[in-house]
Amino acid sequence: MSHHLVVRVVAKLLMPFIILFALYVQMHGDFGPGGGFQAGVIFASAFVLYALVYGMDAARKVLPDGALRIGLALGVLIYGGTGVLGLLLGGNFLDYSVLAHDPVHGQHYGIFAIEFGVGLTVASAMATIFFHFAGRGANLDEMEE
């Protein structure tokens, strides 16, 4: 699809807005519909669009496999780490009330951290899955040539 000028330009214009919307959904999940799961998927879809329009090689340069792998593991680590942090500060596992001076703020921080971990893992997982499907097709093309 890389020879369509309009598609290329519009895709480039849309990218920042999709990512901004993903971040909005991530941060605003406390007050309206949204949260880590949705934000992660939207974030990944921005890179799916990029990969579709500019091809897999360009997308891999933007988002290398190593970074995706680190993001995938780091999200789960943040989630579990938040739980263990509560444990170290004298509460139960995944009890956020002890994270700040008063329980209400602690809960707020805890939920924010958890949602961030969820978003990171979901975004990396979706991008990884798509890149592997698309990358396999690209490999086949090379071999057939």
Binding site: G35, F37, V41, A125, M126, I129, F133, R136
Partner: peptide, 20 residues
């Protein structure tokens, strides 16, 4: 259901990878 949807797409992806 929110979590089930995301897990659903994960299982779909693994299933499709197996099909490939």
């Amino acid at each position: 259901i929110l979590t089930a949807i995301v897990v659903g797409v994960a299982t779909t992806a693994v299933g499709l990878a197996l099909v490939v």
